[in-house]
Design a protein around this nucleic acid. Structure first.
Lengths: 198, 198
DNA sequence: CTTGTAAGTAAACGTTTATTTACTTACGTT
DNA sequence: AACGTAAGTAAATAAACGTTTACTTACAAG
């Protein structure tokens, strides 16, 4: 039996992310993707049932999976609140900065109904993404260090300004001013921490 | 000369927003839109040059314009900082809650390169969106009430958690728990204010 | 070293896409 | 009341779409 060419699989996924980042999800077609990856359209359909299946797998397994892993690297849920949040912010910023293409599809997770629903299904089906962060937050609530909010509200407070800043980082990336630096990220992080504390 | 049928123009825009909200921007086609609006495809091209022109106009003029107007209603840039921010948050939440379809396209503004670039061009070309909020923030910086950040960073801190909460409001809308209430919004708003203060 | 089998390809499938052509309709102006 | 003109339509355009068919290739097992 002829074995799979894993390089081709990876090329397909990477080029898909690149097209999405440069032209948008609405301009990604299977034919364009196949041509850009130097592959027959049929090759994509060996692994994926159809376009939706491909996009959902790319989003959940490739993008969200790697993103979660990077964010949680060396993160200790038992650590001091400020320490923990700073670790999360730096991990996130450093990872996304170097992975613009993944970030682009990540952003579509909030707008595209297909991806948004897939995320919710996945979150319910096999436990929560970012479970250690959930644990970290509950721990700090029970220690009376931060205010008690529903978990999704905590997540909005913790992640959304950061993701917005990453977006702005890329908007400004090729301009001389370069507004979003690691220092700004850390200062903004401190403000968010201060707001969450009791 | 036969006059324009303004009802038809409005129907086209409203149904476009509805399709985008329900099926995603990537599933909006001019033919589907024309059929759903009970109009010939050619009719759409009377007002708009092509699909991109249509989407950008819909996004900038229809969605962002109305959103800005709703957010700034009765907002006084000279008001007390906490008061001002609360007014913005309540205006935003109450407006978006009732305008899910506009909100859907608004969300695509961060992910779709077409809309993202259009927004940046527009922001540079004819002064900033939300200029009164810019003024409000600079005023509070100069009064030494809040920390000094680049304006885009301030905007990220101020708006992005709120928009995330609106997203969650719709995710939970048809479930019994109904997590995102006006009370939660206000509590979260207080946390954001606290974080921004000096 | 043949052979079974899944990986992979090129070309094609019918459908849908964005946009246009050729035509009709409705109405303010003369 | 006829006319000019822009609004509006139905049908058609070529190109691109997602997906499949029919075929070839490469390799592990016998």
């Amino acid at each position: 039996m002829r074995p799979k060419n894993l390089e081709k699989e990876e090329a397909i996924r990477n080029i898909a992310l690149q097209i999405i980042a440069e032209e948008g999800l609405e301009n990604l077609s299977m034919q364009k993707l196949a041509k850009a990856a130097n592959v027959s359209p049929r090759t994509i359909y060996i692994k994926y049932e159809n376009k939706e299946d491909f996009l959902i797998t790319l989003f959940i397994e490739d993008v969200l999976g790697a993103y979660e892993k990077a964010v949680l690297e060396n993160f200790n849920p038992e650590a001091d609140f400020a320490q923990g949040v700073k670790k999360i912010w730096l991990n996130t910023f450093r990872y996304l900065k170097e992975n613009r293409n993944s970030f682009a599809l990540l952003q579509y997770g909030k707008s595209s109904p297909l991806l948004n629903k897939a995320f919710q299904r996945e979150n319910i089906k096999q436990g929560h993404f970012f479970a250690p962060i959930h644990h970290f937050l509950r721990l700090n609530v029970s220690k009376d260090i931060i205010r008690d909010f529903p978990h999704d509200v905590h997540r909005a407070m913790l992640f959304s300004p950061l993701l917005d800043l990453v977006n702005e980082y890329f908007d400004y990336k090729e301009r001389p001013e370069q507004i979003i630096t690691e220092q700004i990220i850390l200062e903004c992080c401190e403000a968010v921490i201060k707001g969450m504390l009791k």
